[in-house]
Design a protein around this nucleic acid. Structure first.
Lengths: 186, 186
DNA sequence: CGGCGCATGTAACTTGTTACATGATTCC
DNA sequence: GGAATCATGTAACAAGTTACATGCGCCG
């Protein structure tokens, strides 16, 4: 099972049309940010590697001279590689929630510190949820030009459900912490 | 903002009592697995580093001879470092859900492939939820010996809420995919 | 003409995983 | 005595981030 997933995000995005490395980074930052990330330091070298393996091709200007945007497109071999990956089992997603570490070790600090950490976590994800809701509305309002429209809405729905779960947890935890504070000061 | 979080998991765990590197790994695997992970390759070198900085101390046997369990305990400097970290802002947790990538690029494969991917994702997290529910029950039934009992229950509750969100998404997505299959075969 | 956003690229670094080596203890 | 688990450790590798260098083109 391949560990390097960068190549498959690239292949997936190129399966919808030709793009530059910069485009790919922008799309990941804008649309995927809540469930994926890549840096330029991964994307550009991977593009070269994929091209050398004939999974993608570019319009790289043979003219030595002026700098230009390099558009990549997927080859039939690349499409095959993408399709094979779709069938492969996924790796267990490993996450690291610092907020839970701090909740677990909460005995080492005051309730106020924990409260402000939970509040911060809640605010960040409320903001993120607003962005997701806007994106969903945008997609729902627009006519369904692309066939993958509904698939993308499923992806957005995942983010909404998970962020709502975070926010609910924060609300309950705030109440728990406030009850605690009251008992402490009694 | 320090990027190296391994040290703080170690300090946090040692704040409850002395432990060996092996113990630390076991606790993280058993209790933290749904929101944190560490490997031996990180834990052992970090223990040495923490000791050299006098944030922890060990009973390392000066006798050259036989191998023994090395118990570490936290120092007052270590406790201070832990308390400072509790107040610091957290890094944005970065996650990578392969399942969402595959959902997004679903056009490149058949509904059956996507369906089995979603099913697999659902089964894994149903299993994980069962384990979390058992752990919660275990904690709730037991008398509250440790003061941090309720804090740990909050952490478990986070996992339950998030896994339930995953599972609900899977159910809805399965229905969405089945509806699609019907339309395709019509 | 200065600054900004677009655009490509790489080197150095940090972080994290895997595989392996070593040896003790426990239990059958 | 052999297998499993406990236990410590490290080297090689893989993955991912950051900072920087370079330069184009547009706008005010």
């Amino acid at each position: 099972m391949s560990k390097n997933k960068t190549r498959f995000v690239i292949l997936g995005l190129l399966s919808e049309g030709e793009l530059t490395g910069y485009d790919i980074k922008k799309i990941i930052d804008n649309r995927f940010s809540f469930f994926w990330s890549e840096s330029f330091g991964q994307i550009y070298p991977e593009l070269k590697k994929l091209e050398s393996q004939n999974l993608i091709t570019s319009n790289k200007p043979k003219q030595k001279s002026r700098r230009e945007r390099i558009f990549y497109s997927i080859t039939s071999d690349g499409l095959k590689a993408l399709q094979n990956w779709m069938k492969e089992p996924n790796e267990k997603e490993s996450m690291r929630f610092e907020i839970l570490l701090k909740m677990y070790f909460a005995q080492n600090t005051s309730k106020e510190v924990i409260k402000s950490q939970v509040e911060e976590f809640m605010n960040i994800h409320k903001q993120q949820l607003i962005i997701l809701n806007m994106f969903q509305k945008e997609l729902s309002d627009k006519a369904n030009f692309h066939e993958n429209h509904d698939d993308i809405l499923r992806v957005v729905d995942f983010g909404q459900k998970v962020y709502e779960a975070y926010i609910n947890w924060c609300r309950e935890t705030m109440i728990y912490l406030e009850r605690r504070s009251e008992n402490e000061t009694k």
